[in-house]
Amino acid sequence: MNKNYILPGFVILVSFSLIIFTTVLLPHFIFHPEPSEYAVEYTELEAKGRDVYRREGCVYCHSQFVRLQDRGFGPLVEAGDYVYDTPNLLGTIRTGPDLSNEGGKHPDAWHKAHFINPRTITPGSIMPPFVHLKEDDMEALIAYVQSLGKKRLKKYDRIYRPDEYVAKLEKRTVDVNSSAAANAGRGIFQQNCATCHGTHGLGNGPNAIALAKKPANFSRPFYKDYDDVTWFWRVSEGVPGTRMPQWRKKLTDEQMWYLVAFLKTLPRVNEVYPHSYETLEPDKWLEQLKASEAELNSEPKAMLIETQGPPPMAGGGH
């Protein structure tokens, strides 16, 4: 080889080894964070879920570290939190929210429904459906997501849970099943809620047209499953990410219980669905379907009279 190129070749060799030493080997030698009190040692199920998380590529949209400037994502992370996380799933893109403190924010059933079809739970989401996951993979993935930051949350406990609202039941002074309370609630509803949710709670108030996320349509069967506490919690805390405000800042507890009483009286949409689980058997269900159809056709559609013009807009989940 030409001698002129020996020196440059040597320089490349030395400089590159130096760079590899400082950026690859040196951190390996001197950077050994102790496992912090929040580092999660995964159980077998959680470890399997972590594998599913990696396999499905969740990391391409969800990061796992909270930065100083992130608000609403729980406590900050430390170096020691990641000791058991190999391969790393830090992520570099957030198309969806950060998941470092996701565990415990939502019940398992929420996650399952969200994986199967995200848009039924968070309207406007662009997360792909993960309906192809097998039952055991799904279970593992949910276990893993619930494990994220669970230790941090136990300490800081910054998350609202409807459980806290269960305690409100004891202090309740309003009989939510009485028609008097519902009547009182009607006035509150017309004054505060009707501009968006419409006078009949169909989600078609005058403001609805201007909202990117349409207000909920309370006639949907979904809302018929709400119990008192869930209604109360929803009204008081509002719905993050939508225009639904936290009504506890404006209304008293008593007023909100009146509202709940009214909301419970809103009829369900004119739509055929089994009245009870006993009738889920195909034959009986068909029978009932016919009966319901006949029933609906004979009824005057009182609720729909006022919604001429723009059709009732589907409310988004809750």
């Binding site: 950026t23 690859v24 951190p27 390996h28 950077f31 050994h32 964070p33 170096a79 990641y82 000791v83 058991y84 996380d85 190999t86 391969p87 790393n88 830090l90």
Partner: peptide
């Protein structure tokens, strides 16, 4: 096998 953050650094 490297611990979480070391893995990220090398990655």
């Amino acid at each position: 096998r490297l611990d979480g953050l070391n893995d990220a650094i090398v990655n």
